[in-house]
Amino acid sequence: MRRPARISPRQIVLVAAKELRERIRDFWVLAVALVFAAFALLIAYFGAAQQGAIGFRGIEVTIASLTSLVIYLIPVIVLLLGYDAVAGERERGSLDLLLSLPLTRFELLLGKFLGLAAALAVSTLAGFGLAGAAIAHQADAAALYHYARFVLSALAMGMAFLSMAVMVSVMAADRARASGAAIALWFFFVLVFDLGLLGVLVFTGGRVGGDVLPYLLLANPADVFRILNVFGMEGVKTLYGLATVVPPALADPWVLGAAMLAWIVAPLAIATWRFK
């Protein structure tokens, strides 16, 4: 019987460090951090411009606007970051070289994921952190807590999409197919999913699955992120009108946190299984 190879944390760290170094070198980390910082500052100071007000108007409005933006932005950035993690190495011929070393497929995959996740974490924390520092003197402790929660949940959503990107990268035959699948995932989760649920509700007049459909929001990490941020603050909840659609049981941060964790782990587990 074949014995499974022991997992070496050292090998995982080496691969992760190489991935992070590459993303720093190609200015991905810097570029994404600047984009996040710029959007966060613009929204914080000019988010209420349409109402004739300029300047920081409060954390709730800022988070509401940022949530809408980040739901579109982070998945696409992250899917583009991760789609060639394995497919690219395979196409370049370096995958065989790496696997000829004392490095298991699981160590390689986890190292790649953690390295890319670290790149995402550095850029997210630096970008939104910079914006947070700029508005800190105008916000109280509760507001800063909400903002920190928003940043961490954005990071968790990014990791969920990164996990999907790595899964696609393992399963696709080449980079072109992997990029196509990554874009399709973004399209489905960010644009189509909610519209589909809404369509079912509208066309059936709420008669079909009206009680179940809200729970299906957990089947989309972007929606988990949205609920997590919207339900944390009364003002934002009203702004979104979600209180009428989402049952209170869904608003439990532990339930949402567990759902997000499942979204990070499950695609990675599938990727590990398929990579064998």
């Binding site: 190489k18 170094r21 590459e22 070198r25 370049r92 011929g93 370096s94």
Partner: peptide, 11 residues
């Protein structure tokens, strides 16, 4: 040494 290996450009 694999045939036609392409190593990482940014390192």
């Amino acid at each position: 040494l694999p045939e036609n290996v392409v190593l990482w450009d940014n390192l």
